[in-house]
Design a protein around this nucleic acid. Structure first.
Length: 300
DNA sequence: CAAAATTCCTGACTGC
DNA sequence: TGCAGTCAGGAATTTT
C-alpha cells in the first residue's frame, strides 16, 4: 500500500535522521526480506561498515547512497515499515526482519507483516557499461531520475517518476497515444509511470474527472493536459499530509507517526458515501483484479 | 511481442 | 468457540 507519497514521507525522515551515520552491524532474522542476495551474509557484508551519504526515492523505492558508490534499496511492498529505534533495547515489533545498527547506537528496523517488500544492496555497473533505461523514462529531459537509474540497474526499468523525471505534457501525450492503455492500468504500471498504486490512481482519476477504464488514445488534448497536471497535484498534497494511513494502520513513518491524507481521500475506500462534489454515492468495482473507486457522475 | 494468470504472505473477517 | 474459506494487493514469474 505504500505508494509514492508514503515512500517520500519515509525518505524525508531518513534523509533528516540517517545521513552521515555509519552501519556497525546488520542482523537479518528473516532471509526472505533480502531474497535478492544468495545469502543474508552477502547482504550484511555489503552493508556493514558503510556510511549513508544520501537518501533518494525513485518510484516506490527508497535509494540510500553509500560511501562506496553502492546503494541500499528499500521497497516496502504492501506492509513494509522502516522504524527508528534509539537503541537495541527498544522492543522489536513482530515481523522485524532486518535490523541495521549504526555506530551511534541507534537502529533502523525493517518490519513487514507479509514480507512482500525487500532490501538489497545494488552494485554499480562497471565503468562504461550500458544500462538500458526504460523507453518511457527516456522521455525525461532532465531531473535526477535518469542518474539514479544509471547507478542502480535494478531500477532502470521504471517508467516516468512524477517528480524525479521532467516530462512535459506533450511528451506525456505521446506516451498516451503510443498504445492503447486503460487509464488505471497505465497509471499503476511501474514500467510506464513509477510510484502510483491503487489508492492514488483512483484519486488522480477522480480529480482529473476521468473514468478508470477510459482508453488512453481516446483522450482529448485538454484531458491529457488535465491528467498530466493532476498527477503531481494530488501526490504533492498527499506528501504534505504525510501520506495515507488506512484503517489497517499499516503505514507509519520511521517515527511511528501515521499520515493524515486518508481524511482527504475523495473516492478511495469511500464506497456508498456521498461524492464531495455532487453527493452521488461513490461506486466500487473490481477492475483488473483491483478494487476501484469512482464517482459515476463526476468522472467521464 | 504483450496481456493475463499465478505466486508470494499474514491478519482480519465471514459463514457455518 | 473453532475452523475453513476469502480477501487485500506490488511486482516478479509463468502461462497463454
Amino acid at each position: 500500500m505504500p505508494e509514492l507519497p508514503e515512500v517520500e514521507t519515509v525518505r524525508n525522515v531518513l534523509a533528516r535522521e540517517a545521513i552521515g551515520k555509519r552501519v556497525k552491524i546488520v542482523h537479518v532474522t528473516d532471509g526472505r526480506a533480502v531474497r535478492r542476495h544468495k545469502t543474508a551474509k552477502d547482504f550484511r557484508a555489503l552493508l556493514e561498515g558503510r556510511s549513508f551519504k544520501s537518501v533518494e526515492r525513485l518510484g516506490k523505492n527508497i535509494v540510500v547512497g553509500l560511501d562506496n558508490a553502492h546503494h541500499l534499496v528499500i521497497h516496502l511492498g504492501m506492509t513494509g515499515q522502516v522504524l527508528r529505534a534509539k537503541n537495541a533495547k527498544e522492543p522489536k515489533p513482530k515481523h522485524t526482519h532486518v535490523v541495521i545498527s549504526f555506530t551511534t547506537g541507534d537502529e533502523l528496523r525493517y518490519v513487514d507483516q507479509r514480507t512482500f517488500g525487500e532490501l538489497y544492496v545494488s552494485t554499480p555497473p562497471v565503468e562504461g557499461a550500458e544500462v538500458e533505461i526504460s523507453k518511457f523514462a527516456r522521455l525525461s529531459i532532465g531531473g535526477d531520475g535518469l542518474s539514479v537509474r544509471r547507478q542502480v540497474p535494478e531500477l532502470a526499468h521504471l517508467g516516468i517518476d512524477p517528480f524525479e523525471d521532467q516530462v512535459g505534457w506533450d511528451r506525456f501525450a505521446a506516451v498516451l497515444r503510443s498504445r492503447t492503455f486503460g487509464l488505471k492500468p497505465l497509471l499503476t504500471d511501474q514500467d510506464i509511470m513509477a510510484g502510483i498504486g491503487n489508492i492514488y490512481s483512483d484519486e488522480i482519476l477522480f480529480t482529473a474527472g476521468l473514468m478508470y477504464d477510459r482508453v488512453s488514445e481516446s483522450l482529448s488534448t485538454i484531458e491529457i493536459r488535465r491528467l498530466h497536471r493532476t498527477i503531481p497535484e494530488v501526490l504533492t498534497e498527499a506528501i504534505k499530509h504525510g501520506g495515507t494511513t488506512l484503517a489497517d494502520e499499516m503505514f507509519v513513518n520511521p517515527d511511528g507517526e501515521t499520515g493524515s491524507y486518508q481524511d482527504l481521500l475523495q473516492v478511495h475506500a469511500r464506497e456508498g458515501l456521498p461524492c464531495y462534489q455532487c453527493r452521488t454515492p461513490i461506486s466500487k468495482v473490481v477492475f483488473h483484479q483491483r478494487a476501484t473507486y469512482f464517482c459515476a457522475k463526476c468522472q467521464g
